[in-house]
Amino acid sequence: MSAVAVVAATTDGPRVKRGWKVIVGGGLLGFLALFMLVGPLISGYDPNATDLDARFAGPSAQHWLGTDDLGRDLFTRMAVGGRMTMLIALGAVALASAIAIPLGLLTGYLGGWVDLAVMRVVDLFFAIPTLLVAIGIVGLFGPSFSTTLLALGLAFWPFYARLVRSAVVGVRDLAYTDAARVIGAGRWRIIRKEILPALLPLLIVQTTVLLGFAVLDEAGLGFLGLGVQPPDASWGSLLAQSRGFVLSHPWIGVIAGVPILLVVLGINIMADVLRDRLDPQGAST
C-alpha cells in the first residue's frame, strides 16, 4: 500500500469550525495560483535567460528571490515551474481518474471474474511503493514532462479504482437502485443515472487528495533527476538543481520547497472541507 491509500482510508480530522479552513485553504491556493499565473509577467524576466554576472545573487529589488547558478531569476523560475508541476499533477490525476472511475464502476457493479481479475492487478500495485512504480515507468520511456505525467497517472489509478469499486458495492444493492431495476432500467442506465451521482462527492474529494500526492511525487521524481529535465523548470527539477550547491548556497534549496508545502497544504485542507460538505459519512469522526 502506498501513502495514497493510507490517507484515502483514514483522512479524518477533528470537527473544527469550517470557516477558517475555507479561508486558509482557499487563501493558500488563490495566492499560489496568482503567483504562478501573474508572477512571470510582473517580474519581467525570461525564466531560462541566464546572466552570468548575477550568479547566486541574494534576494534584492532586481531579483526578489535571488538567482541560481546561471544567474536565472528564481522568482520567475518558481512561478513558471509551478505551472509545469500543476500541469503534470492535474494531468496525472485526470489520467488516473479516466482509468480508475470506469474500471471501478464496472468491477463494482458487475462483480464476478472481471472484478476478481482487475482487483488482483490492483493488489499487485499495492505491494510496490507508488514512487517505485512511477520510477519504473520513467525507466521505460526516459525522463520528460509527458513521462512524468504518464508515470504518476499509471501509479495512482489502482488506489482510486479500489476506492470507487468499494463505494459502488456499497450502493449497488440499496433500495433505490433496486427500484430502478424493478422499473426496467438497464445496466448502463443504472450505472450512469443511479450509481455515478451517488459517488460524485467521493470522487470530488478523492481527486483532490490525489492532486496533493501528485504534486509531492512530481517533486520526488524531480529530486531524483527523473522528472522534467533542464533547462525547463518545475518544482521538482528546481529542487534537484539546488542539490548541487546546497552546501555553498543553501538559500535556493530552502525556498524551493516552500511553494510545494503551501500548495499541498492548501489542497489537503480543501479536501477536508469538501469531505465535510459533500460526503458526511466519510467525514470527521
Binding site: L216, G253, G257, I260, V264, L265, N268
Partner: peptide, 15 residues
C-alpha cells in the same frame, strides 16, 4: 499532521 503530510520529505531532510 496536516502540515507534515504536505511537507516533501527530501526538503525536510535538507532543512
Amino acid at each position: 499532521t496536516l502540515v507534515g503530510l504536505a511537507t516533501p520529505g527530501f526538503w525536510l531532510g535538507t532543512l
